[in-house]
Design a protein around this nucleic acid. Structure first.
Length: 817
RNA sequence: GGGGAAGUGUCGAAAUUGGCAGACGAGCUGGACUUAGGAUCCAGUGCCGCAAGGCUUGGGGGUUCGAAUCCCCCCUUCCCCA
């Protein structure tokens, strides 16, 4: 009686053996080509769901494939362990964030191990441990020393009811996530990284293989636009500012300015508002704070605003123009002020119509006779009503007018980005403390390297106060100045967790190195990452920050490459009940019960089979039995003894050649699908191969050695997908341990060649007949076949053949009339 | 609103990139075997039609001998926007 496939028994057995043998521990080996395969490390939320498997299992399959191809493969795993949920758990359930996080890691590590991946656990990296965040702090200081970190004022989300600062993700449609109170803003002194310095370089993707989609998203995020800064004169009693600066991409239309619009939160608004408009302006500002940026920028929403009662002067024609505020101008973009040219901007046009503001045409559309415009004319035209610039095409006008402004000192060429400097201060406990000391005498002093890490004190209060909990830990705050030894205070904000995930992939190269941030030799061997896989939700922030960081430390001379991830691949999202899986929605699908019932190998294969990896999709376990059945068939196919019905080789020639051909075609197909990251079709090919082998087995028409030559590749090709299953079969068929140390099968191109093809006969492009013919068929023979076909004759009888098309190996097409 | 991706059987999806539409699975329908199982094996399964045959890749138009694939317009869904 044949032993049954029992994953519950064999999976833990092999996992134990692989761990005992340290099969997947990896060391630098200059004799082998390296392959660094990285999956985005998970946040320590507590438990793993099927979405984590979807990220980890297929990438492990690819890494295993590379390993069998002879690469020295680094495939590490770790945990993104700092962050707000740990602190919320502390507040809600009185459990210390450290305890909560480490417990979660324990659980998640156990769950991840059940996948059966080749993770080298000796390299595990956890961002909330001092041995890691010491170096996060070290990098902060490097950035500070290179003028890439600075302090500045920035608004934070503030809940007046909870009296606390809120992270963006805690603000839901303008309200506090916890108490539903309307969120307001407050200015705080905070730390920034000067990512904008790299804005232009970050738009370039030379030498890296990234999805167009992600590059597009990053470029949009950076949002470069060329234009001009132009200052308008101000003269308002009691206000020291004598000018106001705007950014525009259309300086060629400056003579058409009929009003100016400031963002409601522009610092000059309250200073410039005349007394009897104050109430109205204040009310508008309050109202605009409720809208999100997306709502404010929507062209569907009717533009509204308020005149603040003051005028600015257009220095090019000395016209006085009224200053308005409107929420379609954002403080965060450009200078927070725009010159409004209603004739040539859609939003300005709508605004001018609504408030009956003048519309002055300065850029004439082709054939314009001086009449009024029905809508804003935003295309290129010819400059009119603009003094000495009249007659210039608008494109040339942009330069001419900007040059003139520059000459007069009223402004000049500039490039504006949507990208803002990266605010990294968090008024939170559970993060890496910013290693800075404030001394009354010496000012801002970075903590010296020898004093790192600045440890998070264990005994902080996590009650929401609106300030960092660290502020109330006296032992932490009070220190001495590293420079003059006078009493001083520590910075109490912690760093954004994106700073931790910014560089973890560097750490895996030498995770336990203590004398420096990296072991340079090892770093040089492994970096950059050859294939980085993860969800598209990190398209901008994490991936952009990691690129910025890499370029920044390159410029410090720490490394000599510019891009951390040579290839990027985004898998899709697994959803459940038509929504993203999340604890709060209660639709989390846990893999544990599936592992228990069906085994990891089945789930690995199923996740890859449901569709292209980049698609993701609804979790639906109804199809999983197809994989189960298939693996059971393979199990029986391999273990149930093959009984050839023939003895002499000559009899078997034709069947043997065909078996070889199918085998080699399968090797070719599986290899190229793995290379292209098309796991679903790879599995379909393996299933077809299995079906074919079942037929051969039933027929018994090849000799035993030929059979074995086909079964071995089947197991090897399946090994990355079903590592435990194939290891067991490999052993049971008496082969040498471990299957995972075997070489990837190679195909012989000669053997893959078909002897016969299907020749398709078309008439006027429509299929009329088909023949199985030898590949060697000549064009003349093909035509003979077509013309003699009984099925074709009725379609050509009595008609004239006007054209013939012959596609060798595929079809003939007769065009008749 | 802007930017992006995608629409193919009952369902998940294939189609080596302009050349046999629906591979491989799921489901369903028959059948075989039966120590009655949600097991295994065999056959069938896009739609209309008794058939010959016709129709069919969200809808409409176009290019081409030939279009799921390329171009234009429209519709729908999903993703991203500190």
């Amino acid at each position: 009686m044949l032993a049954k496939y029992n994953p519950r028994e064999i999976e833990p057995k092999w996992q134990r053996k692989w761990a005992d043998d340290r099969l997947y521990e990896v060391v630098e080996d200059p004799t082998k080509p390296k392959w660094y395969a990285l999956t985005m490390f998970p946040y320590t939320s507590g438990d793993l769901h099927i979405g984590h498997w979807y990220a980890m299992a297929p990438s492990d399959v690819h890494a295993r494939f590379k390993r069998m191809q002879g690469y020295n493969v680094l495939h590490p795993m770790g945990f993104d362990a700092f962050g707000l949920p740990a602190e919320n758990a502390a507040i809600k359930r009185s459990i210390h964030p450290h305890t909560w996080t480490m417990q979660n890691i324990e659980n998640m590590r156990r769950q991840i191990k059940s996948i059966g991946a080749i993770y080298d656990w000796s390299r595990e990296t956890i961002t909330c441990l001092p041995e890691y965040y010491k170096w996060t702090q070290w990098f902060f200081i490097k950035l500070y020393e290179h003028d890439l970190a600075y302090r500045g004022k920035a608004p934070v989300n503030w809940c007046p009811n909870c009296q606390t600062v809120l992270a963006n993700e805690q603000v839901v449609e303008g309200h506090c996530e916890r108490c539903r109170t309307r969120v307001t803003h407050r200015d705080l002194e905070q730390w920034f990284f000067r990512i904008t310095k790299y804005a232009d370089e970050l738009r370039q993707y030379e030498g890296i293989n990234w999805p167009e989609r992600i590059k597009m998203m990053q470029r949009n995020w950076i949002g470069r636009s060329e234009g001009a800064d132009i200052s308008f004169a101000l003269d308002y009693p009691g206000v020291t500012e004598k000018e106001i600066s705007i950014f525009t991409t259309r300086p060629d239309t400056i003579f058409g300015v009929t009003f100016m619009v400031l963002a409601p939160e522009h610092p000059l608004v309250m200073k410039l508002t005349i007394p009897d408009r104050k109430a109205e302006v204040e009310e508008y500002i309050a109202r605009s704070q409720r809208a999100t940026d997306i709502e404010r920028l929507s062209t569907e929403k009717e533009k509204d605003g308020v005149f603040i009662g003051t005028y600015a002067t257009n220095r090019l024609n000395d016209e006085k123009i009224p200053i308005w505020i409107a929420d379609y101008v954002l403080m965060s973009y450009g200078t927070g002020a725009v010159m409004a040219v209603p004739a040539h901007d859609e939003r300005d046009f709508a605004f001018a119509k609504k408030y009956s503001l003048p519309i002055k045409i300065v850029n004439a559309p082709p054939g314009w006779m001086g009449g009024k415009l029905e809508a804003a004319y935003t295309e290129a035209g010819v400059i009119v009503n603009s003094k000495q610039f009249n007659g210039l095409p608008s494109k040339a006008g942009i330069d001419a007018i900007t040059d003139y402004l520059e000459e007069k000192g009223y402004g000049g060429h500039t490039i504006s980005y949507k990208l803002r400097d990266w605010l990294i201060s968090r008024q939170r406990y559970w993060g890496a403390p910013i290693p800075i000391v404030y001394c009354e005498k010496c000012g801002i002093i970075p903590v010296p390297e020898k004093d790192l890490p600045v440890l998070l004190p264990e005994d902080a209060e996590f009650k929401p106060t609106g300030e960092s909990p660290l502020k109330y830990v006296e032992k932490f705050v009070n220190t001495i100045c590293p420079q003059c030894s006078a009493p001083a205070k520590r910075e109490t904000d912690t760093m954004d967790t994106f700073m931790c995930s910014n560089w973890y992939f560097f750490r895996y190269a030498s995770p336990h190195h203590t004398s420096a941030v990296f072991d340079m030799e090892k770093l040089k061997y492994w970096m950059p990452v050859d294939l980085y896989t993860g969800g598209a939700e990190h398209a901008v922030m994490h991936l952009l920050y990691a690129r910025f960081f890499t370029k920044a430390i390159r410029d410090m001379g720490l490394i000599d490459f510019s891009e951390p991830f040579s290839q990027l691949f985004n898998q899709g999202t697994i959803i459940a009940e038509h929504q993203k899986m999340s604890k709060s929605r209660g639709n989390v699908v846990t893999p544990d019960e599936y592992v228990n019932k069906l085994g990891a190998d089945t789930i690995r294969a199923y996740l890859m089979f449901i569709g292209p990896w980049e698609h993701g999709g609804e979790w639906d376990d109804s199809g999983i039995s197809g994989i189960s059945r298939w693996l059971n068939r393979v199990w029986n196919l391999v273990l149930d003894k093959y009984k050839p019905k023939i003895k002499e080789k000559s009899e078997t020639e034709k069947a043997h050649i065909e078996l070889q051909r199918v085998t080699h075609q399968t090797i070719h197909k599986v290899t190229s699908d793995l290379e292209r990251i098309r796991f679903n079709t790879m599995l379909a090919a393996l299933m077809e191969f299995t079906n074919y082998l079942m037929k051969v087995k039933k027929a018994g028409n090849v000799v035993d050695s030929a059979w074995k030559e086909a079964v071995a590749p089947l197991l090897l090709l399946l090994a990355p997908t079903a590592p435990h299953f194939t290891e067991e079969l490999w052993q049971r068929t008496g082969s040498e341990y471990s299957i995972h140390n075997q070489s990837w099968p190679k195909w012989d191109k000669e053997l893959t060649k078909d002897e016969e093809i299907t020749l398709v006969i078309q008439v006027n492009g429509k299929l009329r007949d088909r023949f199985t013919v030898p590949v060697s068929i000549t064009e003349a023979e093909a035509w003979q076949l077509a013309l003699d076909s009984e099925k074709v004759k009725p379609y050509i009888g009595g008609k004239k053949i006007v054209k013939t098309i012959y596609v060798p190996g595929k079809l003939v097409n007769l065009v008749v009339r």
